[in-house]
Write a protein that binds this DNA or RNA. Structure first.
Length: 464
RNA sequence: GGCGGAGUCGCCAAGUGGUAAGGCAACGGUUUGCAAAACCGUUAUUCGAGGGUUCGAUUCCCUCCUCCGCCUCCA
């Protein structure tokens, strides 16, 4: 497949550098609370990316870390009155549950930062030894940006802009840090009173690793000095990924990541998500509004990963309808196939366009569109042809990670009083007492329920 | 101030130097007591504004307007 590379600024064909397995790293969550749908946009797109590679027959090695020690995890674990490990374990479990609900394939390796402190200390030692890092008086260690000429290439920052960064942040940092150069970033943070029990011994004294270094050390451990692709949200381009490159290249040599895949941020109601605006949704928030994880997934892949995607409750409703339509189309296709066929070839048939779009810079919205047009083109197919088309359709669905819903579910838990009114109305309707019938339907609407009449029975749906 | 991205039908959203996918919604028809569901059909001469290049631009260039993101630990 072809994919845009942040560093090269162009589409490039992806091939495993070892000729066999495509090895890639994704920056995972910081586990101090529930992940929100913005976080999941990135993880879902990374999942589709992996599924497309695997559908194309390319094996993958997917590494995604858990950041289980940093300022926020320490702060919030103390606020909760729990040991850091217990606190992060609980949120990690929640993250895994959400991932499963969204049908994200689990990474092959999911390292945690705390488990890899020795590797991190070793990497810092190497950087100090090679002259790329230095310890300050308080026992923190910093990376010396001036020792790495390529610094800023990924994010296109030149030295002038770094200088600007210095002046902008000089005031904020001057009383906290002991850096040679204010643009230098921290590799090891000296123990502070507020850290509680969360510190580890090191050659520079007690402390804890810096966030950027955690990823570099775990990448070195599991993917070595050169690997195929690195991914995360756009906000990580600077400084996180820029710093990772500096640390890893200086410590390990090698080319680090051959390709950079960044997912643009999700917007909610046209703007940035924030707690203060009350638009920071989690899967649980949306479930409470009656939306399924699959509907969320559909919305998240409904926009191209390099464009802003505007998330609204309305788009979730549209996703619900769209998934129903796909399910009906698939059922109709299966009915027309009329039986099982042994299908030798693995072509995509009417869904070739969808596959092509997925392979062209991961165009998920284009592929979704082609799913509908492919279904329409298949309406005349029967027997083996229909079965072949259905096979292609299902391959695309698997690549997108979509599971179609069963035919519109009849609501299970209807309150007794609502049920009673509906029964009464049904009797009036059967007796052709239209006036009373309409009156009772209006009443149900007022009570928040929609009653739809069928030939033999009726359905009640809550209005949301 | 610097860097980057975006403005396409009421909403969401693809796409392309050659004349605008798809979904939702809406509307019309068949059907229905009326609705709903289902099925069929319709819905942007136009792609933020203005110039330019071109046989031809929404797609390339320039200017402007609007919005968004990043600029030291936020996916």
């Amino acid at each position: 497949m072809r994919l845009f590379d942040t560093l090269a600024r162009t589409d490039r064909e992806l091939r495993p550098i070892d000729g066999k397995t495509f090895r890639f790293y994704c920056c995972g969550p910081t586990v101090y609370g529930p992940a929100h749908i913005g976080n999941f946009r990135t993880f879902v797109l990374q999942d589709v990316f992996r599924r497309v590679l695997e559908t194309a027959g390319i094996p993958t090695l997917h590494v995604r870390n858990i950041t289980d020690v940093d300022d926020k995890t320490i702060r919030d674990s103390q606020k909760a009155g729990k040991p850091l490990a217990d606190f992060t374990a609980a949120w990690t479990a929640k993250f895994h549950a959400d991932c499963e609900a969204l049908r994200l394939l689990p990474p092959h390796i999911e390292p945690g930062a705390v488990e890899h402190i020795p590797q991190q200390i070793a990497m810092i030692s190497t950087l100090v030894k090679k002259g790329h890092a230095y310890a300050s008086d308080d026992g923190s260690v910093y990376f010396k940006i001036s020792s790495f000429p390529d610094y800023g290439k990924l994010s296109r920052l030149d030295s002038r802009e770094l200088d600007l960064g210095k002046t902008q942040n000089a005031r904020a940092n001057s009383d906290e840090y002991e850096k040679d150069n204010l643009s230098d970033f921290v590799l090891w943070k000296a123990r502070r009173p507020g850290d509680g029990d969360n510190f580890w011994p090191s050659p520079w004294g007690e402390g804890r690793p810096g966030w950027h270094l955690e990823c570099s050390a775990m990448i070195a451990e599991y993917l070595g000095d050169s690997f195929d692709l690195h991914s995360g949200g756009v906000d990580l381009v600077f400084p996180h990924h820029e710093n990772e490159i500096a640390q890893s290249v200086c410590a390990c040599g090698g080319r680090f990541s051959a390709h950079w895949f960044h997912v643009t941020h999700l917007l909610v109601d046209g703007g940035k998500m924030s707690k203060s605006l009350g638009n920071l949704y989690t899967l649980e928030d949306l479930a409470a509004k009656g939306f399924t994880p699959m509907e969320v997934r559909y919305v998240l892949i409904g926009g191209h990963y390099r464009k802003p995607l505007n998330f609204t409750l309305d788009s979730l409703h549209a996703a619900h309808e769209a998934l129903q339509k796909l399910a009906k189309g698939a059922t109709a296709l299966a009915t027309r196939a009329g039986g099982d066929f042994t299908l030798a070839d693995v072509s995509f048939g009417p869904f070739q366009a969808a596959w092509d779009q997925l392979n062209h810079d991961l165009n998920t919205p284009g592929a979704l569109g082609s799913l509908f047009t492919g279904l329409r083109e298949s309406t005349a197919l029967t027997g083996r042809d229909a079965a072949a088309a259905l096979a292609g359709f299902n391959r695309i669905l698997r690549a997108l990670g979509l599971i179609l819903p069963p035919a519109e579910e009849k609501t299970a838990d209807i309150p007794a009083d609502i049920q009673a009114i509906a029964e009464e109305r049904w009797q009036h309707r059967t007796a052709k007492n239209w006036a009373k019938s309409d009156e009772l339907r209006a009443r149900l609407t007022e009570l928040g329920w929609t009653m739809k009449d069928g030939k033999e029975d009726y359905t009640l749906t809550p209005i949301r």
